[in-house]
Design a protein around this nucleic acid. Sequence first.
DNA 1: TTATACATGTGAGATAGATCACACTTTGGC
DNA 2: GCCAAAGTGTGATCTATCTCACATGTATAA
Lengths: 186, 186
Amino acid sequence: MHIHPLRAHIEEVLPLTDQEFDFILSHFTPLSKRKHQYLVQEGELVDKEHWVIKGCLKAYFFDQNGKEYIVQFAMENWWITDYEAFNNQVRASFSVDCIENCELLAIDYASREKLSSEMHKMERFWAKKTKLAFIASQKRILSLCRNTAKERYEMLLNQYPQLVQRVPKKMLASYLGVSRETLSRL
Amino acid sequence: MHIHPLRAHIEEVLPLTDQEFDFILSHFTPLSKRKHQYLVQEGELVDKEHWVIKGCLKAYFFDQNGKEYIVQFAMENWWITDYEAFNNQVRASFSVDCIENCELLAIDYASREKLSSEMHKMERFWAKKTKLAFIASQKRILSLCRNTAKERYEMLLNQYPQLVQRVPKKMLASYLGVSRETLSRL
DNA sequence: TTATACATGTGAGATAGATCACACTTTGGC
DNA sequence: GCCAAAGTGTGATCTATCTCACATGTATAA
């Protein structure tokens, strides 16, 4: 008998009973998207946060010169949306696109709020996830200040080898904050 | 009759009864520190998170060349500690020092856990704060990639004019990820 | 009050990385 | 199976920022 991947994911943080997990799962909607389709579009309201069952995505925007900035990638077991827009229920400043065909579980804002307030465990789970995301992003800041382009690329390669396989170099460059030419010259 | 500043701070997110606030406050310990004293020392265990009543602090570390990197500042109404070390109860990779004489409220890990689990409102409050911190740090990442040193300095000046008044330029430079010479030339 | 550390300004030169330009290759839609 | 679009490599500049060096100003602690 196999365990649901979302359950496995949540149980990395805290244990659940079958009933609890069924209750949690009932708040999510499965969703399939093809490569190049979007989940969030800059300027629109963002009502959903997504958990990745399968596939690869990016959160990004273009500046006034058409240069792309990648805020976040997501692969299996990652969460993605425009968090500022989602949490404050305002218009998105980023878009979220599929880099590969994706299988997702989506939860809308009201369901997330309901689930958080009815079930302290989920509040704790999401709080834990947000803490980890915050710590990771502090590390990314330090890395931008401390390390050269090459070092940052090598660190990414060490930490997320599959990401480097699956994503065009050009996008890795945008994520790392270097030009694609510099990344190409490694 | 005046409201306690911590209560005012929490009530920016959600309302509290007198009893609830007294219960919350009983988990904190008041603390005074003088300029140059530390709250967290790199390499030590971190058992406390601090809320600033009065004063100004920095979380930072030095790299192998003796160059300082400032991870975070804190002033009145801000929270500060080494979050990775505090949350995972491991040794600090940053130090936290007072830039001015400080009045603080400290909460230790066990009390925070206890308060979070016994009082859903506080779990929600801290979850909200962490979300905001995460969003702010995503913005800092983008700003490092997108903006020039000058633009970043001007943004800091706009967003935290008092910080720029109270903190030596050298430290602002470390925080912004530029050399003090470049910042001086603006 | 004096001295010593800290903070700040500014010049000159070095450099990581950006930008522009072009060639070549791979991919996916029709 | 073909063609446009996207991805990638590499050369030749250019430039923001770093580094080193030194001068000066300003706290703070004995």
